[in-house]
Simulated assay, not measured.
Amino acid sequence: MKKIAVIPARFEASRFPGKLMKDLCGKSVILRTYEATLSTGLFDQVLVATDSELIYNEIVCNGGEAVMSHNNHETGSDRIAEAVGSYDADIVINVQGDEPFTNQSDLKKLIEVFEKDMDGEISLASLMHEMTNIADIQNPNNVKVITDLSGNALYFSRSVIPFPRDAAVKQPVYKHIGIYAFRKKALLEFYNQSATPLELSEKLECLRYLEHGKKIKMIATDHMSIGIDTLEDLEEARLKWDQLYNGS
């Protein structure tokens, strides 16, 4: 089973433009993410797919592999699909460019989903982390996910799900971590489909897969990922990087 990791890297992020080129303790966010993914040793190939010559050069000039997108894309899945269309791969892992704390354990769990799925029923696998802080739960930048009893995604939302109608029922709230593993076939099918109603409403591409009946296996992780969507996130990431690697 051939595995490729692709990091979609759009320069003009709506909430924090240019965030991938911001400094994270001596290197850019995108380079940190690329190096973290490469260092896992899990993939036959790791590449960055970008619409930016600045990001392309950042990766290539530091010895990495990158491809330029030729089309404008609304989603990271579209950008990845264009990048890997001609590549020989069974499984494609989408590592978000603003997730520099991606680790080997989480990515290995995603790959194992497909190794165990002998009947090929699962189209995607992704990660989730339990949230307990009320402010985090209510923050629409934190995408929430609910699953069935087998751990398959039922819905993703920026709203609080499930709604705590009965305070006596202690139901965990999970944050969706934007790292996906796709069967290449499912990814290319997504690329050839139009955006769906719920996807357009929530602005969440993962809903397109659900609306077309794809099965998404969710894996719970205790790893605290920091997705960099704001300047405050970047400052938090710098503090965490210093704590982990510089002993501060």
Rank of each mutant, 00 (worst) to 15 (best):
M1C: 05
V6Q: 00
R10E: 09
R15A: 04
L20I: 01
C25A: 14
C25T: 13
G26S: 09
G26T: 12
V29M: 09
I30Y: 11
L31K: 04
R32A: 11
R32Q: 15
T33M: 05
E35N: 14
A36F: 03
L38N: 06
S39V: 05
T40M: 00
G41R: 04
D44S: 05
D44Y: 01
V46K: 00
V48K: 00
A49P: 01
L54R: 12
I55P: 00
I55F: 00
N57L: 10
I59P: 07
I59Y: 01
V60R: 11
V60N: 10
G63I: 07
A66H: 00
V67Q: 07
S69C: 12
S69F: 03
S69W: 01
N72R: 09
E74A: 10
T75I: 05
S77E: 13
S77V: 01
S77G: 11
E82Q: 01
E82K: 00
A83I: 06
V84I: 12
V84T: 03
G85N: 11
S86L: 08
Y87N: 09
D90G: 10
D90W: 06
I91C: 03
V95M: 01
Q96L: 11
P100E: 00
F101T: 11
S105W: 03
S105R: 06
D106C: 09
L107W: 05
K108M: 11
K109D: 15
E112R: 14
E112P: 05
V113E: 03
F114Y: 00
F114K: 00
D117M: 03
M118I: 14
G120Y: 02
I122L: 00
I122V: 13
S126T: 14
S126N: 09
S126G: 13
S126I: 02
L127E: 04
L127S: 07
M128G: 13
E130I: 03
M131D: 04
Q138H: 11
N139G: 09
N139L: 13
N142E: 15
V143G: 15
K144C: 12
V145E: 09
T147K: 04
D148Q: 01
L149K: 02
S150D: 14
S150W: 06
G151M: 05
N152C: 12
N152S: 07
A153S: 08
L154K: 10
F156I: 09
S157Y: 07
P162R: 06
F163N: 15
A168R: 14
Q171H: 14
Q171N: 15
P172E: 11
V173Q: 14
Y174F: 15
Y174V: 13
H176F: 15
I177Q: 12
I177R: 11
G178P: 12
I179R: 06
I179Q: 08
I179C: 07
Y180Q: 08
F182Q: 02
R183G: 08
R183T: 15
K184M: 02
Q193E: 14
A195P: 10
T196L: 04
P197K: 07
L198Y: 14
E199L: 05
L200K: 15
L204S: 15
C206W: 13
L207C: 11
L207I: 04
Y209G: 04
G213P: 03
K214G: 01
I216H: 01
I216W: 02
D222R: 05
S225R: 13
I226S: 06
G227I: 03
I228A: 03
A237E: 04
R238H: 00
L239D: 15
W241P: 12
D242Q: 14
Q243N: 12
Q243V: 02
Q243W: 07
G247T: 11
